[in-house]
C-alpha cells in the first residue's frame, strides 16, 4: 500500500501543483502572483509529462554501453524540454509586460489594470 502510494506520489504532486497554480491565477489580484500561478501550472504539466515516461529502476535512454534495456521513455523528456523552453520565453515576456504595466499604470493590481473593458 505504502509503495503504491509512493509510486503515485508524483501524480498527487501534479494535482496539488495544478490546483495551487489555478487558485493563484483565479483568486490572486497581483499580476506577479498570477504569473507565479502560471509558472506553477507549467511545472505541474512538465512534471506530469515526465512522470508518464518514468519506469522504476529504469536507466537513461542512451543505448551506448547501456547496462540494461529497461529504460525510461525519452520522448516525453524531449517534449518536456521543449515545453520548458517555451515556458521560459512565455514567463520572460509576460514578466516584462507586468513591468511595463507597473511603469505606466503605477500598479500591478489586476483589478485596477482594466482600461480595456465593456
Amino acid at each position: 500500500m505504502m509503495s503504491y502510494l509512493l509510486l503515485k506520489l508524483p501524480y498527487f504532486t501534479v494535482v496539488v501543483l495544478t490546483l495551487l497554480g489555478l487558485a493563484a491565477m483565479v483568486f490572486k489580484k497581483n499580476l506577479i502572483k498570477i504569473l507565479m500561478g502560471l509558472s506553477l501550472l507549467e511545472s505541474a504539466v512538465n512534471l506530469f509529462l515526465i512522470v508518464t515516461g518514468y519506469r522504476t529502476d529504469g536507466v537513461a535512454p542512451i543505448y551506448t554501453n547501456a547496462p540494461s534495456l529497461h529504460m525510461t521513455l525519452p520522448t516525453v523528456q524531449a517534449l518536456t524540454l521543449t515545453s520548458i523552453v517555451i515556458g521560459v520565453a512565455t514567463s520572460a515576456m509576460m514578466l516584462s509586460f507586468a513591468m511595463v504595466i507597473y511603469k505606466k499604470y503605477g500598479t500591478v493590481n489586476a483589478e485596477k489594470v482594466k482600461k480595456l473593458k465593456g
Binding site: 491565477m25 483565479v26 483568486f27 489586476a110 483589478e111 489594470v113 482600461k115 473593458k117 465593456g118
Partner: peptide, 12 residues
C-alpha cells in the same frame, strides 16, 4: 456589459 470586466483573472 458588466460581465466584460477587463480583469484577466475573470477571463481565466
Amino acid at each position: 456589459v458588466p460581465v466584460h470586466t477587463g480583469v484577466p483573472t475573470d477571463y481565466v
